[in-house]
């Protein structure tokens, strides 16, 4: 395996409005350091892709952004959101996760009906009005491009849906909370090509309303849907640029090798 210079980095900066910024993120599992250096600024209402080989730390980094690593790892560094450093004990993580939602690698709908998958968390957060709930279900399913397929069977078990439908239900469930930011951790990796295409087209629609950060190991996917791309390598962010520039004109050797398939 080739060795790359971890200090050879190229992090571009942009002047558009930022949804969330990170500074010097480091992650430790016990004494082992899993992530070393992540300083990135994510533009609002854009899709940013995090790419890299498996084990490069992209998922670990993503999970820092809504504090999903709290129980398993120690995270150091600053994560600025709405002028607050959210990587702090003072922050109410439950409130935070309402604004920064997440969709996981494997579709994980609850063992409940399609309708209750979406309303369960809404009710838990205090939404009681039936009409309001119904509207929210319809809207989030429409946004996730699932409404046309399931609107007649909202009371059926979500576990009976196909893989792609399940994943779009998980997206609908996340956006029903009306978050600012949507984090997606390889949302299409467990799906077949048809379902992947469904999910991708859903995401392109969603960026009108949400800031999206997506982890993927599929470079074609990153180039198809994202506006910005960050390249991760062995727990470091080596390059960050607009997707177009990163893929056509990589500044760092590791990035170039990775996107041209000469990697590893």
């Amino acid at each position: 395996m080739k060795k790359y210079d971890l200090n050879d980095t190229y992090i571009a900066s942009f002047d558009n409005e930022k949804a969330i910024t990170t500074k010097n993120i480091q992650v430790f599992y016990g004494k082992d350091q899993a992530f070393f250096n992540g300083s990135l600024a994510f533009p609002r209402y854009k899709i940013t892709a995090l790419i890299g080989a498996s084990g490069s730390g992209k998922s670990t980094f993503l999970r820092c952004l809504n504090r999903m690593n709290d129980d398993v790892a120690t995270v150091k560094g600053d994560i600025m959101y709405r002028g607050l450093n959210i990587n702090s004990k003072k922050i109410n993580v439950y409130e935070l996760r309402k604004h920064i939602g997440m969709v996981f690698q494997r579709p994980n709908p609850f063992a409940k009906s399609i309708n209750n998958n979406i309303t369960f968390s809404l009710k838990a957060h205090g939404m009681k009005n039936k009409k309001q709930l119904r509207q929210r279900v319809e809207k989030s399913l429409k946004d996730a491009a699932l409404w046309d397929e399931v609107h007649g069977e909202l009371n059926q078990s979500a576990l009976a849906l196909s893989g792609g439908q399940k994943q779009r239900l998980c997206i609908a469930r996340a956006i029903a909370m009306q978050p600012d930011i949507l984090l997606l951790d390889e949302p299409a990796s467990a799906l077949d090509p048809v379902s992947t295409a469904e999910v991708e087209s859903t995401l392109k629609e969603l960026k009108k309303k949400y800031t999206i950060i997506i982890v993927t190991h599929n470079m074609q996917q990153a180039s198809r849907i994202s506006d910005y791309t960050a390249f991760f390598y062995m727990g470091h962010v080596l390059e960050y640029n607009t997707t177009k520039n990163l893929f056509t004109n990589p500044h760092v050797k590791a990035t170039e090798d990775y996107i041209s398939g000469n990697f590893g």
């Binding site: 439950y94 409130e95 709908p109 369960f120 996340a174």
Partner: peptide
């Protein structure tokens, strides 16, 4: 009950306890 179910609940801003009582327990 798979860990994915816990993550699903927690990522929606539910408390771990609410996830346990509302999602994990029924399963």
């Amino acid at each position: 009950v798979p860990n994915l179910q816990r993550e699903a609940g927690i990522s929606l801003g539910l408390s771990h306890w609410k996830t346990i009582t509302g999602v994990i327990f029924p399963e």
